[in-house]
Amino acid sequence: MVTIAKEVNFSQAEVPLKGTVVGAGDGHRYLPRAYIVSARKREAADTVTLTLKPKDSITDACPLPEPGQFNMLYVFAVGEIPVSVCGVESDGAFRHTIRRVGAVSAALCDSKVGSTVGVRGAYGVGWPVARMKQRSLIILAGGLGLAPLRMLILQVVRSRVDFADITICIGARTPSDVPFLREIRSWQRLKCDAGLFDVRLIVDRADRDWRGEVGVVTALLPRSLTAPELSLAMICGPEVMMRHAASGLVRLGLSRSDIYLSLERNMKCAFGQCGHCQFNRYFVCRDGPIFSFEKVASLLNVKDL
């Protein structure tokens, strides 16, 4: 799969790149680098978070990603898949949360601490961090959609005073499927003088032991917004949920250009050359995975696209 790198032109003009390069030049982005699994944490029955450290040295590491970007993770002799980066440690290690879906993700989920995987990246367009300052933020995550938003949320928590009201809505299937639960609880305990900081969690179904909310995640959206023109929304989760959430936000007065979604398609090369993730005039790997609703609203209802 990685041999495709021989067939493409790596010029900056053709492949717009983002992120801070820690290591060598940009050709670097197209070759897997050896990373060691330094930690493995089980998030749910079929989901784990891997911490990956550069095997040799930080100078031989992939560029640091921006929130919303993804890496290609390569399990030797099995294959390669795109996985969003859910965190970067202070030592440059990446955190990736992976759900067991196919052969490669299963191999990643089963990888032992100390084993080696290949990493190349960071790829794609991330969340609109530059547009977020001084605005009210609505962050909505469904299921494992929280993983691509986690870096963004951590950044928002660190720089809380840079933003107005912050509403974070998180949905999951059942209480035992909630990813990053301990971290969510810590966000819920955060107190802040600078405007609203509301973190709400809801599950699709639960028994009585669950003291939280039960329902669909879109039910957590605010009933009204005092200044929708100053709000910015970031959504990640199943596409059906994102469509309904984005439509609900439009009804609340948000402009389509102020709503961002993270799309998922079958990505292979990760830099817009192979065409696997073509989405009408876009390549999800290169032009996304984060898109404004304005760009993709009309495409989301096209069947088989």
Partner: peptide, 19 residues
């Protein structure tokens, strides 16, 4: 009803699981 239908889809379920 719309919310219930969305939940019926079990969107967070791992229906793509193959192995």
């Amino acid at each position: 009803l719309r919310d219930t239908r969305l939940r019926l889809l079990d969107l967070y379920g791992n229906d793509r699981k193959r192995s």
